[in-house]
Computed example of a mutant assay.
Amino acid sequence: MLPPPAPGDGPAGLVCSGRGCRRPATWGLLWNNPRLHDAERRKTWLACDEHRERLSTHLQVRGFLRDVVPAAELTGGRS
């Protein structure tokens, strides 16, 4: 098995938000807590391909997940 890519290899150096993960982020999970945030407010978790589903599910079961976008969209297409 190859070691995980070094941080900074993804779009604009974004790193996955998964616990202990240092892989480049390829996805942005946009969310908010409707009890705390205005409807338009979006917070962002970053995810590599491996952690996208787990992190999305975590947010979705709480009713927080609003959208999932490629990480490149978060950096204006820069990679």
Rank of each mutant, 00 (worst) to 15 (best):
A12H: 10
T44F: 01
A12I: 09
W45F: 14
L55M: 13
P4H: 14
L2G: 10
P34I: 04
L2N: 12
S17Q: 05
G13K: 05
L65R: 01
N32Q: 11
T75F: 00
L2W: 09
E40C: 02
Q60Y: 01
G8Y: 02
W27G: 00
A12G: 09
C48M: 00
L36E: 15
L30E: 04
G28P: 04
P24K: 03
V69L: 12
P7K: 07
H51F: 03
G77K: 14
L55G: 00
E73G: 03
T44Q: 07
R42F: 03
P70A: 09
M1S: 14
P34R: 06
R41N: 07
A71T: 04
R41A: 10
K43T: 03
L14V: 03
L36V: 08
S56P: 10
L59F: 00
P34K: 02
V68Y: 02
A6G: 11
G8C: 08
V68D: 07
R66E: 15
L30W: 03
R66F: 05
G76N: 10
L65E: 05
P3H: 10
P4K: 12
P7F: 06
A25R: 03
L59N: 01
R54T: 14
G10F: 01
A12V: 13
L74K: 07
T75W: 00
T57K: 01
G28A: 14
L29P: 06
H37I: 05
L55K: 04
R62L: 11
V61P: 01
L30Q: 06
P7T: 11
L36R: 13
Q60M: 03
M1L: 14
R41F: 01
A39M: 04
N32Y: 07
A47V: 04
R22D: 07
P3G: 06
G77M: 15
A71W: 00
H51S: 04
A47T: 05
